[in-house]
Design a protein around this nucleic acid. Structure first.
Length: 498
DNA sequence: ATCGGCTCGCGCAA
DNA sequence: TGCGCGAAGCCGAT
């Protein structure tokens, strides 16, 4: 894909020139659902100024995607209310749209794009979004660009797939100095002094919003609305509020308590000290660059990489072990997942596991399974294993799963499923159905790690797992603190989802 | 409490 | 070709 010179985040989807008859510049916001630290919004603002056209920010939410539920919809709608507040009083025309019935949005993008000078959208490498972008090409007759606001490094900074975190970390340590400047400068999208909508533009937009009404809601209205949609209502909203403002609150809380003892305490489920930023990163309510910048500023970073680390987890920023530990999660592990989604065709398919992993699992495909649970039993957290059930209940009720336990959660699903392929299907389904950050490249990296991706063989060879790393609930309970966690998620049947 | 062996492939040095 | 090394492990020996 060709780039305009100098910006590896921008892909030109349709090389057509800007439509000289176009009324507006359209930003079709589908992944980076925020108004701050958003390179696609910056690009759209650039076009609006250069072409002297008003900017329309169109933020839609489809109804018919897999696993759509009250949980995901509520989170996104809360973000829309937030974005509406942030754009109120600016010359930007904000158009939030929630599809009320399957296919109701058909024709909407085309109607907006027909009279646009330029269309800018988000590049997002996973789930249905790449397909949606491909399908949209036919409906955008003018210049059409997709902008990558996913990570601290552009997706295309890496030109290959990395099979290990160690290798990817080495690459990151070489590549990050080139963006170090961005990690000190706070971007300020300037929303003032844009061309305003003319009366005729407003009349034209009115014909579109008559047919596809913009979302008009307050916070209470969000939950009432999602209940009326043809989506999965069994999955109730999670415990975290959606939107950029809630995202910043979570980050501020984490900087104050959690980051300072991240290395030592984050693995204890009882303490619950992780950042809780994943759902916000997933829906683009906060930028990874923003998180990284605030963490570095909080830690008093000098602005220089140490230059001595070659793939090792610590010692590249010259910061304390807690901060470096968190940055390794945010950068190495998160961007490793993005790397696979963007560059490994079939990143979500069993066949892309490394050969040693598929071989060893295949050799043990016929091993007897002492425990065999079907999807319904797992979904209902009704196994014989109290720690696993607790983790599953946290997932179904809260929409999140503690980092330490999510690995155990997956390993047990592998152990209890008739085949590793079936285990993958179950993990994908439960994670995508219940986790607010489900369907993220990171979710897939975690699920595939359970099956051997990014990992190495571990002896001794054992039943079902072969040489895939094994984990046991008993050892996990011995190593980390789970007593309160078990009490919190352990016994109350009213927490159970049906 | 700590240690080594179990086991595999990558990437770099030589 | 050899060698160091790796998201969080497990288990038995000392």
């Amino acid at each position: 894909m060709p780039y305009p010179p100098g910006d590896p985040r921008i892909s030109v989807i349709n090389e057509a020139p800007p439509n000289p008859e176009g009324r507006i510049v359209l930003y079709w916001m589908v992944a980076a659902r925020r108004t701050h630290d958003n390179p696609a919004l910056s690009r759209a603002l650039h076009h609006a100024r250069t072409l002297r056209r008003p900017l329309v920010v169109f933020e839609p939410l489809r109804t018919d995607y897999p696993w759509a539920s009250d949980r995901h919809h509520q989170f996104v709608v809360e973000g829309m209310l937030d974005n509406a507040g942030r754009l109120a009083g600016t010359p930007v025309y904000y158009y939030p749209y929630v599809e009320l019935a399957p296919r109701a949005a058909r024709g909407l993008l085309a109607a907006l794009a027909r009279d646009a000078a330029v269309v800018v959208t988000d590049r997002s490498p996973a789930f249905f979004l790449p397909r949606m972008l491909s399908a949209a090409v036919a409906h955008v007759p003018c210049r059409f660009e997709a902008v990558d606001g996913n990570g601290v490094l552009p997706l295309d900074a890496a030109t290959r797939v990395y099979p290990t975190a160690y290798g990817f970390r080495r690459f990151l340590q070489r590549a990050l100095p080139s963006v170090a400047g961005d990690l000190r400068r706070v971007p300020r999208e300037d929303l003032r002094d844009l061309p305003p909508l003319s009366g005729s533009d407003r009349a034209w937009l009115g014909t579109i919003t008559d047919r596809w009404p913009a979302l008009v809601l307050d916070a209470e209205g969000a939950s009432a609305l999602v209940r009326t949609l043809p989506i999965d209502h069994v999955v109730r909203p999670g415990v975290q509020r959606g939107g950029p403002t809630a995202a910043q609150s979570a980050l501020t809380r984490f900087l104050g308590d959690g980051l300072g003892r991240y290395a030592t305490d984050r693995n204890h489920p009882d303490l619950d000290l992780t950042s809780h930023l994943s759902p916000y990163l997933h829906f683009g309510h906060i930028a990874a660059t923003d998180v990284c910048r605030q963490v570095l500023a909080h830690a008093g970073w000098s602005g220089q990489m140490s230059g001595t680390a070659h793939g090792h987890r610590e010692g590249w920023w010259g910061l304390d072990v807690n901060v470096e530990g968190f940055l390794d999660e945010l950068l190495t592990w998160r961007e490793l997942g993005l790397n696979a989604a963007a560059h490994l065709p079939g990143y979500d398919r069993y066949g892309t596991l490394p050969p040693w992993a598929r071989d060893t699992l295949a050799r043990h495909g016929a091993d007897p399974r002492p425990y065999a649970y079907d999807l319904a039993t797992l979904d209902a957290a009704a196994t014989h294993d109290p720690l696993w059930n607790a983790a599953q209940r946290q997932l179904t009720t809260e929409g999140r799963l503690h980092n330490m336990l999510r690995m155990l959660w997956g390993k047990k699903i592998l152990e209890w499923s008739p085949s590793p392929e079936a285990a993958l299907e179950v993990m994908e389904h439960l994670n995508n159905r219940y986790a607010v950050d489900g369907r993220d490249p990171n979710s897939y990296a975690g699920i595939f790690w359970v099956l051997g991706r990014y990992d190495r063989a571990w002896g001794p060879e054992r039943a079902i797992f072969g040489t895939i790393r094994y984990m046991s609930s008993a050892n996990t309970a011995r190593k980390v603190r789970v007593k309160q966690y078990l009490a919190r998620y352990g016994a109350d049947p009213s927490l159970l989802s049906t």
